[in-house]
Amino acid sequence: MTSLLEKAFDLASKLPALEQNILARTLLDEIESEKKWDELFAESEDFLAQMAVEALREEAQGMTTELDFNKL
């Protein structure tokens, strides 16, 4: 545990029980949220890689057209 986190826990331990529980729930929710984002980003890399492979395959097969900004 880092000294900063240790200091935060020390200060938090002096709060009333209700405030400690609110702080704990907030921290746990934040950790869970970060975990979910990490999982989503990890999955998106696979998805984007698959899309890139498919786009390159379509380009190699002549299935794509050049983008004309005047036609957007």
Results as ranks from 00 to 15, higher is better:
residue 17 A to T: 12
residue 48 L to H: 05
residue 58 E to G: 03
residue 11 L to R: 03
residue 4 L to D: 15
residue 41 F to G: 02
residue 31 I to G: 01
residue 29 D to H: 02
residue 2 T to W: 11
residue 4 L to F: 15
residue 14 K to D: 12
residue 56 L to H: 09
residue 32 E to K: 01
residue 55 A to D: 08
residue 59 E to L: 13
residue 59 E to Q: 12
residue 34 E to S: 08
residue 2 T to F: 10
residue 63 M to Q: 15
residue 24 A to K: 08
residue 11 L to I: 04
residue 26 T to M: 09
residue 25 R to H: 01
residue 11 L to S: 04
residue 57 R to L: 12
residue 66 E to C: 06
residue 47 F to V: 09
residue 72 L to T: 03
residue 6 E to D: 15
residue 6 E to Q: 14
residue 70 N to C: 05
residue 46 D to H: 04
residue 37 W to I: 09
residue 18 L to H: 10
residue 32 E to Y: 01
residue 42 A to F: 01
residue 18 L to K: 14
residue 64 T to K: 09
residue 41 F to H: 09
residue 61 Q to D: 14
residue 59 E to F: 09
residue 62 G to P: 00
residue 16 P to Y: 12
residue 31 I to E: 11
residue 45 E to N: 08
residue 15 L to Y: 10
residue 57 R to Q: 13
residue 24 A to N: 06
residue 65 T to N: 11
residue 7 K to H: 13
residue 1 M to P: 02
residue 70 N to T: 05
residue 13 S to P: 00
residue 19 E to G: 03
residue 64 T to P: 00
residue 37 W to Y: 13
residue 31 I to K: 04
residue 55 A to V: 03
residue 27 L to C: 02
residue 10 D to W: 13
residue 11 L to Y: 04
residue 70 N to L: 12
residue 65 T to M: 12
residue 6 E to S: 13
residue 70 N to W: 07
residue 49 A to L: 08
residue 45 E to S: 07
residue 56 L to G: 04
residue 25 R to W: 00
residue 27 L to T: 00
residue 11 L to N: 05
residue 12 A to H: 07
residue 5 L to M: 11
residue 27 L to S: 01
residue 43 E to L: 08
residue 2 T to L: 11
residue 45 E to Y: 05
residue 27 L to R: 00
residue 59 E to I: 05
residue 57 R to A: 12
residue 2 T to C: 09
residue 30 E to K: 04
residue 10 D to G: 06
residue 58 E to F: 11
residue 40 L to A: 05
residue 10 D to C: 11
residue 13 S to G: 01
residue 28 L to W: 03
residue 7 K to Q: 14
residue 19 E to Y: 14
residue 65 T to E: 15
residue 26 T to H: 02
residue 57 R to H: 13
residue 55 A to T: 02
residue 24 A to C: 09
residue 66 E to T: 06
residue 45 E to Q: 10
residue 6 E to A: 09
residue 2 T to K: 06
residue 4 L to C: 12
residue 50 Q to N: 12
residue 41 F to C: 08
residue 14 K to Q: 14
residue 57 R to P: 01
residue 28 L to V: 03
residue 32 E to D: 08
residue 10 D to S: 15
residue 36 K to M: 05
residue 65 T to P: 01
residue 4 L to P: 01
residue 44 S to Y: 11
residue 70 N to Y: 10
residue 72 L to C: 10
residue 72 L to R: 07
residue 16 P to A: 10
residue 50 Q to I: 02
residue 69 F to D: 11
residue 58 E to D: 15
residue 39 E to L: 09
residue 34 E to V: 06
residue 58 E to P: 00
residue 27 L to Q: 01
residue 33 S to N: 13
residue 54 E to P: 01
residue 68 D to S: 06
residue 63 M to V: 04
residue 15 L to E: 13
residue 7 K to T: 08
residue 34 E to N: 10
residue 4 L to G: 05
residue 58 E to H: 12
residue 15 L to D: 07
residue 39 E to T: 03
residue 72 L to Q: 10
residue 7 K to F: 10
residue 22 I to A: 13
residue 52 A to I: 02
residue 56 L to V: 06
residue 57 R to E: 15
